[in-house]
Design a protein around this nucleic acid. Structure first.
Lengths: 119, 119
DNA sequence: GCTTGACCTGGAGTTACTCCAGGTGCGATC
DNA sequence: GATCGCACCTGGAGTAACTCCAGGTCAAGC
């Protein structure tokens, strides 16, 4: 059973050490193990879960909702339909985020073209 | 010359009234006109500029950089090359934002499929 | 035996809003 | 002509999601 030091998890997940501590504090990460000196030792599962969190965060899910997802996950397999619902709702928001970005990008490109034309 | 009330600008731009006041306070909007009673009256140009700000904000540009863009715009036409540079740099960041979102979306879809498969 | 480096904690600071309390001016209503 | 509601005003406190910092621990290398 492999364990990860804080530095390794930072490397692996792209979260900062401060963010990892923050996520633990607010309950997004459950009771991370400690070694004799009180330093964090993360498990494989922790790292996997952090991968999911990174995905949700990068797609703009608020922490309150990530917490809800975390609670569902801890509650056991009978919450899987709820989790599907949550992720499907989120997926639709990601979809419209992408559409919005594509449109904004066109605006920016137009602006650049305009600026080029007046030079 | 048309003027816009705060409520109209909110309607038109999608910013909240609080955000409009905030943007004026920090200098993203320059000295908005007032009527005799001290209430804001926005010009056509204000609304146009807010359209640009909305685009930059929605694509994740930090306020500090929007302020820089505002200053360049106020400084006159000789800053157009700088503005092009700024927007091109930003455009690249938007591009990679979109790529990132598309990848995260695949991850979410996979997760949903997985959940479906274990039901 | 001392320093260096990775880690710890609690708490203050930052960004970009968002909300609220208390107040003004104006058109419509009693 | 007093009053009501409403859209607006200001200054300041509150929020989300980190981010930074001061001061401290502990094992490892010189």
């Amino acid at each position: 059973m492999t364990v990860y030091t804080p530095a390794e998890v930072v490397e692996e997940t792209g979260f900062t050490l401060d963010t990892l501590r923050y996520y633990e504090k607010i309950g997004l990460l459950e009771r991370v193990e400690r070694n004799a000196a009180g330093q964090r030792r993360f498990t494989e599962q922790d790292v996997g879960w952090l991968g999911m969190l990174r995905c949700l965060r990068d797609t703009g899910m608020p922490i309150a909702q990530m917490l809800r997802f975390a609670e569902l996950t801890r509650a056991g397999d009978h919450t899987i339909p709820d989790r599907i619902k949550l992720l499907e709702d989120h997926d639709r928001r990601v979809e419209s985020q992408i559409d919005n970005l594509l449109e904004r990008k066109r605006y920016i490109r137009n602006k650049i073209s305009y600026y080029r034309s007046v030079l």
